[in-house]
Design a binder for these strands. Structure first.
Lengths: 210, 210
DNA sequence: GTCTATAACCTGATAGAC
DNA sequence: GTCTATCAGGTTATAGAC
């Protein structure tokens, strides 16, 4: 089975290289040659495992979307924790993901805009709707019971993800224009975090963030 | 001069076609052939006016960035108008621009990420920094005089533009997931607007939005 | 000025040798 | 399974005819 193992290794090596290149440069700007060079083999070798560039991208994109759905429902369902703290923990979780890969948000938006079908397939293939429904139902229930202010869930999500994603999406502007003297991007992100918490809590509470 | 005029016309026709295609599909996904076909001439005709695709894009991108700097300082400097109303008017101005071209925000972000130099050149070629400094100084002055709460200007901009741009950047998600029954995207945008105003005013005032 | 023709290159994809 | 060789098509860009 050592041959099989070796082949598997090469397959995952190709996937990882493709993922890296696709996320950094996008579908159109990444060629099969680029992937082959990065892995250290030649073009036909790449075509062997995923016959077309399209199929390869589909595989990569799906697993990328999946990695963007961390287990934040475990955090959001802890009703005993103040909502502000829960939001903060969710932000930490996403920060962790994006700090190792700041290009992820703009990549997703780019490819969603290029062809929405990849995204549609990805979120239906996994149970992404059920996933968000869990969080939605929890919040709705807390609203119904008066623990949280009533606000349209879609605008809650839009507020949260807008504020979370934007610094990464315009990272270049942040680094070239918004940074203070001797400040790193990560330091700026840390200072930005409480603003996200505050904005979301303003929607959900009457100022006490509990 | 009629020949000259005709040539000028063709040049602007090329520019407009290129602009439309670049904004819709991006730099990498747009070929010189696409532009030539759209104008109704052939490839070399396009090369004649802007020798390379790169130079052509630079011209287009510059004028696009410029169109994103409407005269919002005229609104922001009207100190007698409550800050909430000023923000609302600025949103209306941007909505007007984006409704005729919803792809603009994601286009700018895409190309900024692909190569930040185009953006750098564009904002230095026009007086964009001076432009934002006017608004920044106005706000800073109102903060110093106690009319507005003191808050870092960069986070104010980040809040405003995040919330403004995101619905357009993820338009596909909005249309496929966030829309209510029989609701149009524009109707959703109208409902979203007060949330932007509220979030920005929460940063600048103590709740009275004045 | 605007076209035809063509150069030089890169792309995705396949067939077939080993 | 992984390579070499090759294909057909599309890309930017230029040279030269009209």
């Amino acid at each position: 089975m050592s041959e099989n193992k070796k082949a598997e290794d090469l397959e995952t090596r190709i996937i990882n290289a493709a993922k890296e290149l696709f996320i950094e440069n996008g579908f159109a700007e990444t060629s099969m040659s680029d992937i082959a060079i990065k892995v250290g083999i030649n073009r036909p070798g790449v075509h062997y495992y995923f016959r077309t560039k399209d199929k390869m991208f589909q595989a990569v994109f799906g697993s990328t979307i999946k990695s963007l759905l961390p287990k934040i429902q475990d955090i959001m369902l802890q009703r005993e924790i103040p909502i502000g703290d829960r939001i903060g923990k969710v932000i930490d979780t996403y920060y962790e993901i994006f700090k190792t890969n700041p290009n992820l948000p703009i990549f997703i938006m780019k490819e969603m805009h290029r062809d929405f079908n990849y995204f549609s397939k990805a979120i239906t293939d996994m149970d992404a709707i059920h996933y968000f429904d869990m969080i939605k139902n929890e919040l709705q229930d807390e609203m119904d019971k008066g623990f949280l202010k009533t606000v349209p869930i879609r605008f809650l999500f839009l507020t949260f993800y807008s504020l979370l994603i934007m610094p990464f999406s315009i990272k270049n502007i942040c680094q070239n224009i918004f940074l203070e003297e001797n400040e790193t991007f990560d330091e700026m992100l840390a200072k930005w975090k409480p603003y996200i918490v505050t904005h979301v809590c303003n929607l959900l509470t009457d100022g006490n963030q509990s």
